[in-house]
C-alpha cells in the first residue's frame, strides 16, 4: 500500500452503487483541496465505479488496493477541486 498521508477515512462496507459513490462524494465535499480520502468498501463493482466517478469530478485516484485475501478494498482519492 502506498505511503500517502490519509486525512479522512470512511467505511462504506455493505453499501452498493450508487450509494457507495454518494457517501464518498459527500465525504470529499467536506474536505479541503489537496487532502486525501480513504474509502473502505466491499462492493466489488464500486472499485471501478468510484474511481471513474471521482475522475469525472476532477479528483485524482491515488490507489485501489485489495485487503489480504478478503473481498474488501481501499480506494484513496486526493481532492483536487470544490
Amino acid at each position: 500500500m502506498s505511503e500517502t498521508q490519509v486525512d479522512r477515512k470512511i467505511d462504506i462496507k455493505g453499501l452498493s452503487c450508487p450509494y457507495t459513490f454518494i457517501k464518498a462524494k459527500l465525504a470529499i465535499e467536506s474536505m479541503e483541496i489537496g487532502q486525501t480520502l480513504e474509502i473502505l468498501l466491499d462492493h466489488k463493482a464500486a472499485i471501478n465505479n468510484i474511481p471513474n466517478s471521482m475522475r469525472d469530478h476532477g479528483h485524482t485516484v491515488l490507489s485501489v488496493d485489495q485487503l489480504d485475501d478478503r473481498e474488501e478494498w481501499t480506494i484513496r482519492v486526493r481532492k483536487e477541486k470544490d
Partner: peptide, 17 residues
Amino acid sequence: QLLRYSRHILLPEVGGK
C-alpha cells in the same frame, strides 16, 4: 434524504452542497 436526492447529489453541479 440520501435516497430521495441521490440523483442530484451525483451531479457535479449539485452534490451535497
